[in-house]
Design a binder for these strands. Sequence first.
DNA 1: AAAGCGTGGAG
DNA 2: TCTCCAAGCTT
Length: 358
Amino acid sequence: MIRVNDSTFNERVLAWFDRHGRKDLPWQQDKSPYRVWISETMLQQTQVATVIPYFNAFVDRFPSVEALANASIDEVLRHWSGLGYYARARNLHKAALIIAGQGSFPDTLEELQQLPGIGLSTAGAIMSIAYGRSHPILDGNVRRVLARYRAVPGWPGEAKVNRRLWELSRALTPEQRAADYTQAIMDLGATVCTRSRPSCGACPVNADCLAFGTGRVNDFPAPKPAKALPVKQRTFLLLTDRHRQVFLEKRPPAGIWGGLWCLPEFENPDQALGWCLDRHIPVVGRYAMDRRRHTFSHFHLDFTPLVILTDGITGGVGETGSPIWHPLEAIARLGLPAPINLLLKQYQNHEDKHGKTD
DNA sequence: AAAGCGTGGAG
DNA sequence: TCTCCAAGCTT
């Protein structure tokens, strides 16, 4: 157990929060467990500004656990498309079905943590923000504040460092004003104790911040050890007909872009072409669009779009998932991975300008 | 323990 | 254009 010799840490953080904290974010208006749960899930590894429009649209369409449980996974994913980490949406839907079956929203840390997509930090955030119960959290903001405040060495991705930061968070979290404190410590990290160029002069705890006191603010937390990202080569088949319909298939439920509608994916253009020939798809024209590189968290994707024009296809060609022909103009409403959406928009612009090439 | 999972902002 | 990483969780 870590001893806290500075018993006023939380008091100073809370006093700062009263004057400078954010209190008008959409999910801070009606802090029901459901809304807090949705917002905390969306905010996992995702910045506030990105989340705001998604949160508003999501709770507008799914205003309650029941509404979410009664929706189809397709519609839930559609509202998530562009936000990334789609397992979060699949887990939300699964958890909503569980909660709806239980009849009431869970109100203990243990129950919350058993739901898919809710880990220790998200459970702590829901407990404190929605129920006003004192529970620590450890997100990126808190991790950074605490690593600097106590000059905790090492990369937080290491289990040992992570455990120490959790201990610190636990020790510093007060019994009183639990909801405000959770908001406060996150706001402090997000607006004052920022990753680069922190405003230490405006920090309520700079007087006993070990990193600030020793001029080593930039040394904490230690950066993740750099690793060269592997490069994957992939071809995406843009199979389209004279009616401006595009062939799409649903991706497998797990893995990247799981459950989303997408262009068929191949290792190279030859395989894409072979796939068409195997299915006796009449190829009346083809060309490659500009190749591009897309960077993900764990690999680079060298991305080759292959446009194939056909005619007379009515469906039933795919095998990975249920295939559909979909109007190009209405693609955006279907909810596709962001890079695929972008590619289709570029193709549509090109077609609008030059017309069909066949 | 370590890897997989997205997207966009910031430098 | 490239790297780093953000209100993390799961396997």
